[in-house]
């Protein structure tokens, strides 16, 4: 069962603005019955002001496809076409209290239907320029087409590089096998063989100097501190050894039940700031000389 938010369920069970709209003067259609979801967005636009006075939809699809359609119509009613076009798929997902990564395409479909409807109103032709592949990285919702294109465009040859360019594989790492398969396929196209060994250091693009690396680690720590201090806690950078960053949790943060969650969040920011996989390890400050790993 999908972990749908209450808002998603509410919009699915009680969809707003559902049904045909014979007087619509802007119609956008995306999807098809063969790919499992299809959305027709119908708008009534005031020609002088380009204001959307009414919106409705008809959708064939799963729960989140119907909820996304319903949310979209609510969001754009009363807006001008220009204002409506500023609604991103992320906005639709946010309006619904978030969507599971596997379902983000439902919000993308909503956004595309909107673009298509506006183009229809203005007598333009709208072409979709994105293709979706199988979901590879569930942590960051990156699909196979995105990974393949990025590997091809940048001549990538390692999982680490793919993570740096797309974020795919930067979380739980269970998709690394899938990424390696795509690497092997694309590299074979250009006559190379994929090898799991990392590429030589110097050819790695944008590699940080040790100094810049430490600076960025410190920046992330500094950014996290005000939030922790508000809860009477604190965090201190202790040491960096390769890909392991040792920190000390202080005050209310030390031994807090939420410690793992807090550290996970900061570790994620580290990974993004450094563009590499690092591990954040909490240590107890025993004495200025020695560190002790908590058991």
């Amino acid at each position: 069962m999908w972990d749908y938010s209450e808002t998603v369920k509410e919009h699915f069970y009680n969809p707003r603005n559902a049904g045909p709209m014979p007087e619509a003067n802007a119609i956008g259609e995306v999807g098809s019955i063969s790919c499992g979801d299809a959305l027709r967005l119908m708008l009534k636009v005031e020609p002088e002001t380009e204001k959307i006075v009414d919106a409705s939809f008809q959708t064939f699809g799963c729960g989140s496809a119907i909820a996304s359609s319903s949310a979209l119509t609510e969001m754009i009613k009363g807006k001008t076409l220009e204002e409506a076009l500023a609604v991103s798929n992320q906005d639709i997902a946010d309006f619904l209290g978030g969507l599971p990564p596997e379902k983000m395409h439902c919000s993308v479909m909503g956004r595309e239907a909107l673009q298509s409807a506006v183009a229809n109103f203005r007598g333009e032709e709208w072409k979709d320029d994105h293709e979706e592949g199988a979901l590879i990285c569930k942590c960051f919702a990156i699909d196979s087409v995105m990974i393949e294109d990025t590997i091809r465009a940048n001549n990538l040859c390692s999982v680490e590089q793919v993570t740096n360019y797309t974020k795919a594989g930067g979380g739980c790492s269970s998709c690394h096998e899938g990424i390696e398969e795509i690497l092997a396929k694309v590299m074979a196209e250009r006559g190379e063989t994929f090898s799991p060994a990392p590429p030589p250091e110097k050819t790695r693009p944008g590699k940080l100097s040790t100094l810049e690396r430490i600076r960025r680690i410190e920046q992330v720590i500094e950014r996290a501190r005000p939030n922790l201090q508000r809860d009477h806690g604190d965090i201190e950078l202790v040491d960096v050894e390769g890909k392991t960053i040792y920190v000390a949790m202080k005050g209310a943060c030390a031994g807090c039940q939420m410690e793992a969650l807090t550290l996970g969040g900061i570790q994620q920011q580290m990974i993004e700031a450094l563009g590499e996989l690092v591990k954040l390890v909490p240590v107890k400050l025993k004495s200025p000389q020695g560190l002790v790993n908590p058991s």
Partner: peptide
């Protein structure tokens, strides 16, 4: 709710009645 359904039955020729810009 479905764009492929009209009243009591499927729209005539559902594959064509719904003509998206892309599929």
């Amino acid at each position: 709710l479905s764009p492929y359904w009209d009243g009591d039955g499927p729209v005539a020729d559902p594959e064509k009645a719904f003509a998206p810009t892309y599929a």
